[in-house]
Amino acid sequence: MMRNNEMQTTFLSVAENEAFARVVIAAFAMQLSPTVCEIADIKTAVSEAVTNAIVHGYEGTRGMVTLRASIHDHALLSIEISDQGKGIANIQQAMEPFFTTRPEQERSGMGFAVMQTFMDELSVESAPGKGTLIRMKKRIRSRDMLENATHIL
């Protein structure tokens, strides 16, 4: 039986840590025996959230980004990415596909749309000067399937 579990890591807001965050979340999620596709979804969503914290939250200045994750109900992965950066004034607008404040940096404005598509749940808490907290959840299906299959056998 899968036990509940939690992790937390905090790292500097430099672009090199985007790959670091992806590796960390993938390693933590492995205990849920996700499919290759599920792992790619999780890594992509985390990559988007961490990139947002670095590019928009801290705008290239140095601050700390925290990645927290937990596993509960045997198959539910919850992820939180938070920063103490400048925050988002209009969350609804920020979440619109193709909306970007950085067209000159060729930012596509698709970050939140990718998180929304690849995860089951997404919520954003933010206010100017208060930083941003992104919460995402994904139910990992592969283990359910495996357990059902064992049942039948």
């Binding site: 990559s47 990139t51 930012r107 596509s108």
Partner: peptide, 12 residues
């Protein structure tokens, strides 16, 4: 691996 940053690179 590619995330939405790749979209910007291709469209640019």
């Amino acid at each position: 691996f590619m995330d939405s940053s790749g979209i910007g690179v291709i469209l640019g």
